[in-house]
Design a protein around this nucleic acid. Sequence first.
DNA 1: GATAAATTTATAACACGTTATATGCTCCCG
DNA 2: CGGGAGCATATAACGTGTTATAAATTTATC
Lengths: 203, 203
Amino acid sequence: MERSGEKSQREKSKDLNRQKVKNAAAEIIRREGIEQLTMRRLAEAAEVSLRTPYNLFGSKTDVLLALLDDLNDRYIAAAQAMDGRPALRRLFGTLDDFEREFSADEAFYREVFHGIMTADQVEPRRVGYDGLIALTQDLLRQAAAQGELPADVDADALGEHLAVLFMSVLGMWASGFFDLRACVAHVRRAWASQTPDIETSTR
Amino acid sequence: MERSGEKSQREKSKDLNRQKVKNAAAEIIRREGIEQLTMRRLAEAAEVSLRTPYNLFGSKTDVLLALLDDLNDRYIAAAQAMDGRPALRRLFGTLDDFEREFSADEAFYREVFHGIMTADQVEPRRVGYDGLIALTQDLLRQAAAQGELPADVDADALGEHLAVLFMSVLGMWASGFFDLRACVAHVRRAWASQTPDIETSTR
DNA sequence: GATAAATTTATAACACGTTATATGCTCCCG
DNA sequence: CGGGAGCATATAACGTGTTATAAATTTATC
């Protein structure tokens, strides 16, 4: 039995292989595009057997999901970093953060997202759907508590709605319908029309 | 040389095979689900060779797109059928029509849509993206001309925006994130917040 | 009606994601 | 240190969408 905190040699070895697979996947996507990312090629580049990525991740989709692992954490951290400011401003601030982060590497993120979304079955939890809704609802509840929202607004329902709009438009960006700038503009416009008239951008 | 209007025997025979393939595809999806729709099984059910659907449609995705062929026409016809009424009312009326039409056969349409959206590359034109934008812009231009919109609203930009929101949320419905009722509710709410305060449902 | 062109057919093959099988290696525990 | 458990490996295989090849069949043209 291993104690929590310290990792067995076995686990460290698995982590190493996980890292090798993730690095190889990211490099192939960046250098040659996601259509070149086959499991055989990935295994070869990561210097593991074909079976190993399946053992460590489960499927090709799970490898792509792993490339986005720390993304949710960063999103939440960004929202919390803007601590003193009004909740609605923080909400729109997450949009700015998202745009900044993704536009630095738009092609990469688009290909990863699209690869995930085109899986046979998309499991909402795994793509951060629930977490995004929870975060948005949380910010809107704070906004309501601070009097930033009209009293008759259901903060939870609105939070779910705004999160759905965000993810929906993101999905079309991933499918190549428009670029990231247009994607964020659509979300910003939709969000702004449902929230009181404040400065909707922190830039 | 064939005259326009009359079809050659060649073309009639191809139309017949197209119909056989489309009917077989729809039947397999309805009876056994889209995961049972393989090209080999489809060819067998349609009583054609494996190659023929590729000759007649191009790819599996194109077969699915063909199942939705007359959908756009119906959408446009529905918008025009409500002729006398205000343009904004007609716009929301198309939402009602969409909900009525699809809820009668939700599982079928969802599987077809999802099958199309999960293709390697989605071509916006082929999924009716451009047509939907054009229709929405048209209705909003009429609304502006009839004074239903504030003077400072850019009808074309708003039309594109509303169409994008519709298609985006539709994409998430197709991926199974929520059901059709929730899908339409999200679109209605997003649309309503961007248009003047009228009765947003014709029901 | 004969000949050429267009389609369909039958069969095999390719690359893909994924799984099965059997073998080998490495680490943990007594 | 020895043995068993956990994991990686190599290889083959399956079903998938799609394409190649060559033969058969249907349609158009002279």
